[in-house]
C-alpha cells in the first residue's frame, strides 16, 4: 500500500457512482480486505499518499472499529493500482522461470457524495443537492465519468424498497454523459463506449438474500470454506430485475431499460455484492441460514456497526472484470 508515484497516474479510470448511502465508500474500504482475503495474488497500491491514507483509514474503521464510514460530504479523488501476480514465463531452455510484467489495472476512483445528481437525499443528513446543476462537484463527477471507460454503478435494493429513487440518480448523469460522448464522437455503435459493472449492494441483507433464495438464484462455491451463498454471474441480472419489482416507486424497471439503452450488452455485467458479507460464527466457521446477519442495528445517533468478521462478496470481482476488459481494449489498441 505504498504510494507509487513513479509509475504515474494510470489511464484507465474507473468511476464509481450510486445513490446516497448505496455503499460506495464501504465498497472501497472493503476492497483492500477482499483482496487480502482472496489470496489470488492481487494487491492494491495507492498512487499518492492521500489515496493510501484513505484506504488505510477506511479499512481500519471497518476492521477494528467495526463501523461504517460516514456519509461522504465532498468528492474525493483517489488513485490506486490493482496489481496482479506476475505471470510465470516458462521458456523451454530456461531452467529458471523469469517473472514477467505483472498485470496492472489503474483505478481512479472518486468517492463522491451520492446525492450529487438525484433529487433524493440520504436519510441521515448529508449534502442537500436538489438538482446540483451548478455544483462544481457534479461537473467533476461528469468529467470523471467522461474520462473513465469503466463504471461501477451501485444499486442499493434496500434504498429502492424504501425510496425507489435509483432511476432518479442514474438517469440525469447518463444523459449528460451521452451528450458529451456524442459531442466527442465517441458514440460509435450507438452506445456509450463504457463498460459498466452494476453492483446490487447489501446482498447480505435478509430481504435481499431472501429474494434471491425465493427465485432459486443462489449457489455456493465449492472452494469457499464458509459455504457463503452467492449469485452466479448470469443470475445477478435476474436478481436485479427481481429486486426492481419490489421497488417503492416502480421506476426501478426503467433502470434496467436505461442501462440497455446506453450500454452495449457485452459491456454490462451484474454483481450481487456485499461489502461486509454474511456473519459466520467463529467456532462453527460455516454459513448458518438461521443466523447470518452481519449488520448490527444502529443505536440512536450512532452509525451502523458490523457484527463479526468481514466476508466481502463480489467486491474485487467487478473491478477485476472492468480492469481486465479495459486492459484488453488497450492492448488491442496498442497492437493496431
Amino acid at each position: 500500500m505504498q504510494p507509487d508515484p513513479s509509475r504515474g497516474r494510470p489511464d484507465h479510470d474507473i468511476a464509481m457512482w450510486g445513490a446516497p448511502g448505496s455503499g460506495k465508500t464501504t465498497l472501497l474500504a472493503a476492497l483492500y480486505i477482499a483482496l487480502t482475503k482472496s489470496g489470488n495474488g492481487w494487491k492494491i497500491v495507492g498512487s499518492d499518499p492521500a489515496s493510501s491514507d484513505y484506504l488505510v483509514e477506511r479499512t481500519k474503521d471497518l476492521l477494528q472499529g467495526k463501523v461504517f464510514p460516514e456519509a461522504s460530504m465532498a468528492l474525493e479523488r483517489y488513485h490506486w493500482s490493482l496489481i496482479g501476480p506476475p505471470p510465470r514465463k516458462t521458456g523451454f531452455w530456461n531452467r529458471k522461470a523469469k517473472p514477467g510484467q505483472p498485470p496492472r489495472i489503474g483505478i481512479g476512483m472518486i468517492d463522491a457524495p451520492g446525492g450529487l445528481f438525484g433529487a433524493g437525499q440520504r436519510p441521515a443528513g448529508g449534502p442537500s443537492p436538489q438538482d446540483g446543476s451548478g455544483d462544481p462537484r457534479r461537473q467533476e463527477l461528469l468529467d470523471n465519468l467522461e474520462h473513465s471507460r469503466g463504471i461501477v454503478f451501485l444499486f442499493d435494493p434496500i434504498r429502492e424498497f424504501t425510496y425507489g429513487d435509483a432511476f432518479d440518480h442514474m438517469y440525469p448523469p447518463l444523459t449528460r454523459l451521452a451528450e458529451r460522448m456524442l459531442a466527442a464522437g465517441e458514440f460509435t455503435d450507438g452506445k456509450l463506449p463504457h463498460h459498466i459493472a452494476v453492483c446490487v449492494t447489501k446482498f447480505d441483507d435478509p430481504r435481499v438474500l431472501e429474494t434471491a433464495e425465493a427465485r432459486g438464484l443462489l449457489t455456493t462455491d465449492d472452494d469457499d470454506p464458509y459455504r457463503l451463498p452467492r449469485v452466479a454471474g448470469d443470475d445477478a441480472r435476474e436478481l436485479f430485475h427481481e429486486l426492481c419489482q419490489v421497488s417503492a416507486t416502480g421506476s426501478a424497471d426503467m433502470v434496467l431499460e436505461t442501462l440497455d439503452q446506453y450500454f452495449h450488452p457485452d459491456r454490462i455485467r451484474f454483481f450481487a455484492t456485499s461489502s461486509i458479507g454474511f456473519y459466520v460464527d467463529r467456532r462453527a466457521r460455516r454459513f448458518d441460514w438461521d443466523d447470518f446477519q452481519n449488520m448490527l442495528p444502529e443505536e440512536v445517533d450512532e452509525d451502523s456497526r458490523i457484527r463479526g468478521q468481514l466476508h466481502p462478496i463480489n467486491v474485487v470481482e467487478p473491478l477485476l472484470w472492468l480492469g481486465q476488459r479495459l486492459a484488453a481494449i488497450r492492448s488491442a489498441k496498442g497492437v493496431s
Binding site: D205, P206, R207, D290, D291, F292, Q293, P297, R307
Partner: peptide
C-alpha cells in the same frame, strides 16, 4: 427471532 428474518433483529 429464532432465526435471521426481515425484522433485522439478530436471532
Amino acid at each position: 427471532p429464532p432465526r435471521t428474518d426481515r425484522s433485522r433483529i439478530l436471532p
